[in-house]
Design a protein around this nucleic acid. Structure first.
Lengths: 228, 228
DNA sequence: CTGAGTACGTACCCACGGTACGGTGGCGTA
DNA sequence: TACGCCACCGTACCGTGGGTACGTACTCAG
């Protein structure tokens, strides 16, 4: 059932003057992205045919291949848009927060919200790595959601006054991001997402409290004692 | 270039007696799995054609579809084998360890080794979720690698004498598993895997030390204070 | 008014997953 | 030992779907 989406049709010029042609072009491109996003979310990348996409957008494959280099390119464009929305959403939640711990909490909460969106789970988490390859997948991550995590970790580390070099900071961010992704997935698939979300918040909070406690007590990580 | 793998050919009975027929059958099935594993690892699921698999195994599609219900089923069989090997490898590393913290460390180290295997990264981490779907993917995880993580977390929590219910324990395990997966991926793709592995061990050790410090100091997680 | 190039539509190719069916040889049975 | 059955596998074929080559209409600069 190819969903049809309303789209500008070159009949009467909507806005006369500078480039009506390009308006139609942008409209069809956007429509293709919208339809593709819906189908990718619903059936996944592999089970979505380009015929279904162009049928939903009420165009032909000629139009699709004019705007995108192929199916993978179309997916990547959709992928980028979804990640951009997610990043904007999270960044918005951080507005106004001053305390790094508070920012971390707000960021986590908003991420747990985002990860419950079907499109994010399906397109970014599930199909993303396989379609884009881990190389490009991590490139995309780096300059979107993951980038936000890096900033938060940097802020928190600054409060703790730990002397982490840039590499170590990225390692921590990577670990936290992986933890959040997995946690988010468990939240999204849980029978009661709300309860599960609370559990995750509690667990992560538990871990972070450990950092604070350790900073206060000035303990030495036990399995770093036997360094050779 | 379809790699050909040596395989039993029904010419002279290798071991006479009980069921030579089944030996040939098992041999071809195993050969199909071996070839498929190699091709899936090298080119990925989507870019691997069944023609290439049967060519490498020196059989035809008739044989393949006799043993497996389809391409996805073939992949899942390969997937299970890889995960079983990984689980065995990690369990082996835990043998003899008594102290839970020590077990955690050994398990982490072995996991970081496993995650560097190209077949595990490509088949399990990269293509697994997309091909099997998140449902089946997590089912498989649950009774293999992730199950080991749960046991380790349970042991460690027992030492800390924290009263975690089963749900919370699973949440922690989920988080740690996600952290380890992401960390493992960063290790595998790093320019210097050894150094990266050390960083991850240090970071995770850092976090776990936080737990110990917190257990000693009996602090309260800060963002759990404002419970409503 | 006209050339040029954008923005599509049309027709087609072919790789690849899947299926239907045919055959052959081992293995239990009498 | 003869025989029939079924597991095991080969052969031939189809349909879907990604990708491509090429034609066309419309727009805008000059």
């Amino acid at each position: 059932m190819p969903r049809s989406v309303s789209r500008l049709v070159p009949k009467v010029p909507a806005v006369p003057g500078a480039g009506r042609r390009q308006q139609f072009s942008a409209s069809t491109k956007r429509t293709l992205l919208d339809v593709a996003e819906g189908l990718f979310t619903e059936h996944g990348y592999a089970a979505t045919s380009l015929d279904a996409v162009v049928a939903g957008a009420e165009v032909t494959k000629g139009a699709l291949y004019h705007h995108f280099n192929g199916k993978a390119a179309l997916f990547e464009a959709v992928f980028e848009r979804v990640e951009q929305d997610a990043t904007r959403s999270i960044s918005q939640a951080l507005k106004g927060r001053k305390d790094p711990w508070e920012k971390a909490q707000a960021g986590l909460r908003q991420f747990l919200e985002v990860v419950q969106e079907p499109r994010y789970r399906r397109i970014v988490i599930q199909d993303g790595p396989a379609v884009l390859g881990y190389e490009r997948y991590r490139e995309q991550e780096e300059r979107s959601t993951f980038g936000t995590v890096v900033e938060i970790v940097r802020a928190v580390a600054g409060v703790g006054e730990w002397d982490l070099d840039e590499e170590m900071l990225h390692t921590f961010a990577r670990i936290f991001f992986g933890a959040m992704s997995a946690a988010g997935a468990s939240v999204a698939t849980a029978a009661e997402p709300d309860v599960a979300a609370w559990r995750v918040e509690a667990a992560i909070g538990f871990i972070i409290s450990g950092f604070q406690a350790m900073a206060d007590a000035e303990v030495v990580p036990p399995w770093l004692a036997e360094d050779d």
